[in-house]
């Protein structure tokens, strides 16, 4: 049995964990068919860990859903498979290639599949009848997210209307839906990037190895270091060279850049994050750079 805490104080990480577990249980109790959107990145792994803790020793009472862009890092998929088999959860994969083949989405014939994730995801939600979808979004990530609720309502088109958000008070969440609507749930809204790393370190849980320093053949594009891969042909003037790098986020391999780093342990990553001068998305995500409202626009359409 753990030691009695005489001061009845919880560390901030314990408080965040308790709040997130509360959200998971609330959703499992009130929604007919929740699903956890899993990208394989650190935030979705922290979500899985919290879900594991919320329902232990029962299995997580909902499926996990992954949008397969066809452009995911192989290392991320391996980690995903190990988590799925350890927890014994049901995995639903929504593939962009299949969606194109089946005529659900048009073949835009562009390498950036970021936008194609949206209709693929919305189709998977509708087809499976999911009424709530957990996402790993954090409010510290981006200023449109800073105003998003924990329970974020989506209409029958999957759209988010930032002006029509429901007030969210105390820890009383309103999960009411009409036919065809669904709710996005953000159980780690109040976590920062540093909290996520602290938690991964404390819990000793597996994350994809691309988060740690490794040798990789990369080239520079738009001020970011991109992986050499047949999926992302290099352009004129771009030079491939081997560098010591790591990734701060896991996204589409053609859009997610890495940073030069020698951080090979969680503790070293935490030190690096603590002194980082750029946000994780600003530094390494091509998809957020298009305009000041890039994230807000994608969110309105139904992005994560």
């Amino acid at each position: 049995m753990t030691q009695t805490r005489t001061d009845y104080r919880l560390s901030q990480l314990d408080q965040l964990e308790a709040e997130s577990i509360h959200i998971f249980r609330e959703v499992a109790a009130e929604f007919e068919k929740p699903v956890l959107m899993f990208s394989g990145g650190k935030d979705s792994i922290v979500m899985l860990r919290l879900a594991e803790k919320a329902f232990y020793p029962a299995k997580i009472p909902f499926s996990i859903l992954q949008v397969d862009t066809g452009l995911d890092f192989p290392e991320v998929m391996e980690t995903r498979d190990r988590w799925v088999s350890r927890l014994g959860v049901n995995l639903v994969v929504a593939s962009i290639d299949d969606a194109i083949k089946n005529g659900i989405i048009p073949d835009a014939a562009k390498i950036s599949r970021n936008r194609l994730q949206i209709p693929t995801l919305l189709n998977a939600i509708e087809e499976n009848g999911f009424t709530a979808a957990f996402g790993g979004g954090r409010r510290d990530e981006e200023k449109a997210r800073a105003k998003e609720r924990v329970y974020s309502h989506r209409d029958e088109f999957g759209q988010w209307d930032p002006k029509m958000q429901r007030p969210e008070l105390w820890s009383l969440y309103n999960g009411r839906l009409h036919e065809g609507e669904h709710m996005r749930i953000f159980p780690i809204s109040n976590w920062t990037e540093l909290d996520v790393w602290d938690y991964i370190g404390r819990e000793g849980i597996e994350i994809p190895n691309i988060y740690f320093s490794h040798q990789r053949r990369v080239f520079e594009r738009d001020g970011m270091l991109m992986s050499e891969t047949p999926l992302n042909p290099i352009r004129e003037g771009e030079v491939v060279e081997e560098r010591t790098v790591r990734f701060r986020t896991c996204g589409d391999i053609t859009l997610t850049g890495c940073v030069e780093s020698t951080a090979s342990t969680i503790a070293e990553i935490i030190d690096e994050v603590a002194i980082a001068r750029k946000t994780e998305r600003g530094a390494t995500r091509g998809d957020d750079r298009f305009s000041e409202a890039a994230m807000e626009d994608r969110k309105k359409e139904g992005y994560f």
């Binding site: 049995m1 753990t2 009695t4 805490r5 919880l10 408080q15 964990e17 308790a18 709040e19 577990i21």
Partner: peptide, 11 residues
């Protein structure tokens, strides 16, 4: 883990 006591805001 078993705990000896639970207090707010523990889940």
């Amino acid at each position: 883990q078993e705990v000896a006591e639970a207090f707010p805001p523990m889940s």
